[in-house]
Design a binder for these strands. Structure first.
Lengths: 255, 255
DNA sequence: AGTTTATTGCGGTCTGACCAATTAGCTGGT
DNA sequence: ACCAGCTAATTGGTCAGACCGCAATAAACT
C-alpha cells in the first residue's frame, strides 16, 4: 500500500517533513496502535518510496515531537500519549483565532504588567516603540519591534508561564501558512495608525493603570482584527477559513 | 578546533542528540552570532568527526527546536530570536506561575465559552465533572477528568488558539519537575472541595453567564493556589523557586 | 554601468555498506 | 516436555561517497 507523497504540499518543501506528516497521519488514524511497533525503517523507506536517511529524519522529527520512541536494535514504538497532544500540538491555527486569543490573554497580561513593571522595563518598552516608529518603512524590522513590544510586556508580569504563552501565540502566528498569506495582504495594505495604539498602552503602563492597560491592549488588538478584516476581501477570508477547516483533521508536526 | 564527543554523556545515546547539544552550546556561547551562517554540513561533519547524515539529523533537531533555519542551497542560519526562544521553549515554569496564568487566561476563556457553548458540549463538561466525582479516590483518573473538564471549556470557545494555549499550559504543568514535586504534596494533602467549585463553573456555563463563568473560574483557580500554598511548607516552596532560578540559564533542547 | 551568464558552494537526497544491539529461533542437554 | 545457552536474523546506528538542483556570487557580455 503505497502512499503518494506529493499529495500534501502544505509543509515546507523538505521531504522528511512530508514523510513525517504522513507517518503521523497514519499513526493517528490508528493503523498502528499505541505501544506497538512501527515497520522497520527499510520497509518504511520502501513503502514511502524514499531513502532510509529520509525515513530516519522523519522518525527523528516524530521522536522530538513526542509521538514515537526509538529503541535501538529493537524498533520504533508509538508512544501511548493521548490523541489530545497530537491534535493540539501544532494545529494550523488561523489568524483570527490567534488575535481573538491575544485580545483576551494579552489584555490580562497587560493589566498584570501595569502593576509589576519596573522603570527599566518601561524604558525597554519605550525603546521598542521608538524602533517601530523610526523604522516604520522597513516592514520586517517594524514587525520585530512589534513582537518585542508585546513580549516585553509579557515579561514585565514576572510570570514565566505568561511569557511562555505569549511566545507560543507568536509562534503560532509565524508558523501558520494561512496567517502568512493573510498577513502578507495586510502588509501590502499598509499599517500606519498602529503607533498611537501602542503609545496608549505604554502610557497606561507608565501610569500603572492596570484597567487602562488592559483596555488599551484590547482596543489595539481589536483594531488589528478590524484592519485584517478590512484588508482581506471576504472571498479570501472564506478561502482561508475553508483551508483551516480542511486542515483541521491533519496536523503539521513541524514548527 | 575539534570538539570531543564523548565528553557530554548527558543526552540519550543517540549520536545526533549529542551533536545537537554541542552545536546548540557553541551557538549559545556566541561562537556564531544570530543571523549568521553556520559552517557547511560537510565542514561540521569534519569538525565533529561524524558523518554528514549525523550532522543533518542534529541540524534537524535544532531546526525543530527553533534554533536555526535551514535555507536550501544557501546554508543553515541561526535564528535571531535566540535568547527568547531558548529561554522560553523548555523553561522550567513553576506551578505558581502556571496557576496565575490560568487564572487570567482560563477566566477569559470561560467567559467566552459561556457565550458560545452548545448543549452537547455542556453535556460533555457535565460528564467530565461526574467522572471527577465518582472516581475521586482514583487520583490519576480524577486528574484526567480535571484536565478534560478544563480543556472542554477551552474547546467550547471554538477558538483553536485558545485550545492550543490551554493545552500548552497543561503541558507545562505536566513537564515541570518542580510542579511534579509540589503537586505530589498537594495530592497527599487531599483535595476534596474542588467539586463544588467546578460545579459553580458549570452552572455559570449552563446559564450562559459569561461574567459569572469568569468569576467562578478565577475563584476556583485562586483556591487551588491557596491550597497549594497551604500544603507546601514555606521552605519547600523556596527550594523549588531556587531550583527554577538555577535552571533558567540552561536549556534542554531535546524534548 | 547594467544585464546576463557561468561558476562555485550549499543543502537535499539516494545508494549501499558495515557495525552494534536486540530478539527470535534453534540446539542441545536435562 | 522443558529450559539454558548459543546462533542467526532483524533492526536501528553510522558512515562513505555520489549526484542533483538551488542560490549567491563572480565573470562576461551588451
Amino acid at each position: 500500500m503505497n502512499v503518494s507523497l506529493d499529495a500534501g504540499r502544505l509543509a515546507g518543501g523538505r521531504l522528511y517533513q512530508r514523510v513525517a506528516e504522513q507517518l503521523a497521519a497514519i499513526i493517528s488514524e490508528g493503523e498502528y496502535s499505541p505501544g506497538s511497533r512501527l515497520p522497520a525503517e527499510r520497509k518504511l523507506a520502501e513503502r514511502f518510496e524514499v531513502s532510509r536517511p529520509t525515513i530516519r529524519e522523519a522518525i527523528i522529527a516524530l521522536e522530538l515531537a513526542g509521538f514515537v520512541e526509538v529503541r535501538g536494535g529493537s524498533g520504533v514504538y508509538i508512544c501511548d500519549g493521548e490523541s489530545d497532544k497530537l491534535a493540539s500540538t501544532n494545529l494550523d491555527v488561523g489568524p483570527f483565532d490567534i488575535l481573538e486569543a491575544r485580545i483576551l490573554f494579552e489584555g490580562e497580561a497587560a493589566e498584570l504588567a501595569a502593576k509589576k513593571i519596573t522603570e527599566q522595563e518601561l524604558a525597554e518598552v519605550r525603546e521598542a516603540l521608538e524602533d517601530m516608529v523610526t523604522e516604520n518603512e522597513g516592514e520586517p524590522i517594524c514587525e520585530k519591534a512589534d513582537e518585542r513590544f508585546h513580549m516585553l510586556i509579557a515579561r514585565a508580569t514576572k510570570n514565566d508561564a505568561i511569557v511562555s504563552v505569549c511566545s507560543h501565540l507568536w509562534a503560532l502566528r509565524n508558523s501558520s501558512p494561512v496567517s502568512a498569506r493573510i498577513l502578507e495582504k495586510v502588509r501590502q495594505a499598509g499599517s500606519k495608525p498602529r503607533i498611537e495604539e501602542h503609545h496608549a498602552i505604554l502610557e497606561a503602563l507608565e501610569a500603572r493603570d492596570g484597567a487602562g492597560a488592559r483596555a488599551a491592549m484590547r482596543e489595539h488588538l481589536t483594531r488589528v482584527i478590524q484592519q485584517l478584516l478590512d484588508a482581506t476581501e471576504a472571498e479570501a477570508v472564506e478561502e482561508a477559513r475553508r483551508a483551516v477547516m480542511h486542515n483541521r483533521e491533519r496536523f503539521n508536526l513541524i514548527g
